[in-house]
Design a protein around this nucleic acid. Structure first.
Length: 264
DNA sequence: TCGATCCTGTAG
DNA sequence: CTACAGGATCGA
């Protein structure tokens, strides 16, 4: 479920409440990694960071608690670790009573303990630039696009190209930039690429603002309630820009929503 | 570069 | 019942 903006919201919420705390104990449920129970107690939480859609909880002793929420994961703090629900897959109790809870109904997500250096190397090798970071320049973006025959949608979904985008914000960025998701990336003109680059940044910035309000809280993610989508999930509805009907088509096994009227 | 796959929940 | 789900990886 969550893309970069939602993961950022999770991290911001968590950061203030757990940084500096010491771990008392951990409990795992439903085939979550048992090693956490033994390895976590006594360690101090040094920092909470985000890289793309990855959540990195830095621990003393050169370790990082690595969480990926995939489709249905959620990670949040509760005032009393004992009060977690049955949905929890991992509960980490901190000194003082606070609990860190990892929920994941579909169990596609992962929470694992890794060596910090090794993990960071791995992420650096497998992820493209942070779209909200300084290294994501229009020039670098255009350089990657050059020669690519991948459809724009699939190119943007690839975490090695731009890290952190997912199905919703790819659709929204392409809509804002008026680009057909089926169009080969390498065939976009320089101005279109520049427009797309800009819209990727602005759509994510807008989404971070709204996701911050609605995500990373106990319970379930609520669908689309935080961000006002123009095309995602709007099959059959009229385009807010040109009035033509929003269409849905499968790309890479996922649904792509777009307006054939004004996305070319 | 596609399709299957990991899982469970929910909507039609 | 089937289809689909805001993700990512693997093998053909």
């Amino acid at each position: 479920m969550p893309e970069l903006p939602e993961v950022e919201a999770v991290v911001r919420r968590l950061r203030d409440r757990i940084t500096g705390a010491r771990i008392q104990h951990a409990k795992v449920f439903r085939c979550a990694p048992a090693e956490l129970v033994e390895a976590l107690p006594g360690r101090r939480i040094l920092a909470v960071e985000r890289r793309a859609k990855h959540i990195l909880i830095r621990l003393s002793g050169g370790l990082t608690l690595h969480t990926h929420l995939r489709m249905t994961g959620n990670l949040f703090a509760i005032p009393d670790a004992r009060l977690h629900t049955e949905r929890a897959r991992v509960v980490i109790a901190l000194q003082g009573g606070t609990g860190i809870v990892f929920e994941d109904s579909r169990a596609l997500g992962r929470m694992t303990l890794r060596g910090t250096q090794e993990l960071d190397n791995e992420l650096a090798a497998s992820l493209g630039p942070e779209p909200l970071g300084a290294e994501f320049s229009a020039e670098a973006f255009a350089a990657m696009a050059r020669g690519s025959r991948q459809p724009a949608k699939l190119f943007l979904m690839d975490q090695r190209k731009v890290a952190g985008l997912g199905n919703i914000y790819v659709a929204e960025a392409l809509f804002r930039a008026r680009i057909d998701p089926r169009k080969a990336m390498g065939r976009l003109s320089r101005p279109r690429l520049a427009a797309l680059h800009k819209e990727i940044v602005t759509v994510l910035q807008d989404a971070v603002e709204s996701a911050w309000i609605a995500y990373g809280v106990p319970g379930r993610f609520s669908e689309g309630e935080s961000f006002d989508c123009q095309v995602y999930g709007r099959e059959g509805q009229p385009c807010t820009r040109c009035g033509k009907e929003i269409r849905r088509l499968p790309q890479g096994g996922r649904s792509t929503y777009f307006c054939a009227g004004c996305q070319r």
